[in-house]
């Protein structure tokens, strides 16, 4: 596991490193501490990480800019901040957890558990996604998305207006931060259940879902059963 810690107060950064090592032990492949936004931006362009531990107020600058950039990456972000009033907005942007300062080892352990747990266990739903287009970040409202479809290392977000945006996320990580109305109907697909028009057996052991916009999506046998039970109760 590759961890990046962005924290401007060195003693605290050291403390977080110590706690990470104590909780994760051998699971850590690499751990890196950075103190400023500029360093972090530069580092994220060059390096691959799995988890970013981010302080939202670095040297008096607003870390939301970095947050938007971070959540567009393929890694998870956990916020460590004393500004608890920013927690809800952070969750809206799709962070995995928000740890209020001061915290102890136990609280950090819970955050790591969330990282490893594939189930959705967040109280506040994500509202926005951040898609990277060149050097910029485009904010996509999650309500505008009909379904997500995997596309190699990326995920395609299919919007209600027929457009497609490419997200730098894995399907598993997406599953951890999506609101509950998105169901994973197939290894390669999340769909907003309210956008489902029909589902049917397509023959040859294959199942399909037709969305309101007329797109046809693959449906796993397992989910087909679940849907069937859900609707025929």
């Amino acid at each position: 596991m590759r961890i990046l810690i962005i924290e401007d107060e060195k003693p605290i950064a050291d403390y977080i490193v110590r706690l990470c090592r104590s909780i994760l032990g051998d699971k850590i492949q690499s751990i890196r501490t950075l103190h400023t936004l500029e360093q972090a931006k530069a580092y994220l362009i060059e390096s691959q990480i799995d988890l970013c531990l981010l302080d939202l107020n670095l040297n008096g600058e607003n870390g939301f800019e970095l947050l938007k950039s971070a959540v567009s990456g393929p890694f998870h972000t956990i916020i460590i901040s004393a500004h608890t009033e920013q927690a809800i907005e952070a969750f809206h942007h799709g962070v995995l957890d928000f740890i209020p300062k001061p915290f102890d080892e136990e609280r950090l352990r819970i955050a790591f558990e969330r990282y490893f747990d594939r189930r959705k266990n967040r109280d506040i739903a994500t509202r926005y996604f951040s898609a990277r287009i060149g050097n910029q970040h485009k904010i996509i409202l999650i309500d505008d998305i009909d379904y997500f479809k995997s596309a190699g290392n990326y995920v395609e977000a299919h919007l209600k207006n027929g457009k497609t945006e490419l997200l730098n996320k894995t399907m598993d990580r997406l599953g951890q931060i999506l609101p509950p109305r998105f169901k994973r109907i197939h290894r390669s697909c999340f769909v907003d259940l309210s956008q489902v028009y029909s589902y049917r057996h397509a023959g040859g052991g294959k199942y399909k879902i037709i969305t309101r916009s007329g797109d046809s999506l693959p449906l796993s046998r397992q989910t087909y059963k679940e849907l069937h039970d859900l609707l025929n109760v």
């Binding site: 107060e9 003693p11 605290i12 403390y15 110590r18 901040s81 004393a82 209020p100 300062k101």
Partner: peptide
Amino acid sequence: PHFIMNTLLSIVSWLSE
């Protein structure tokens, strides 16, 4: 809060070191 909380966290971090 952020002043106190950060300071408290600093204290926590210095406590062990």
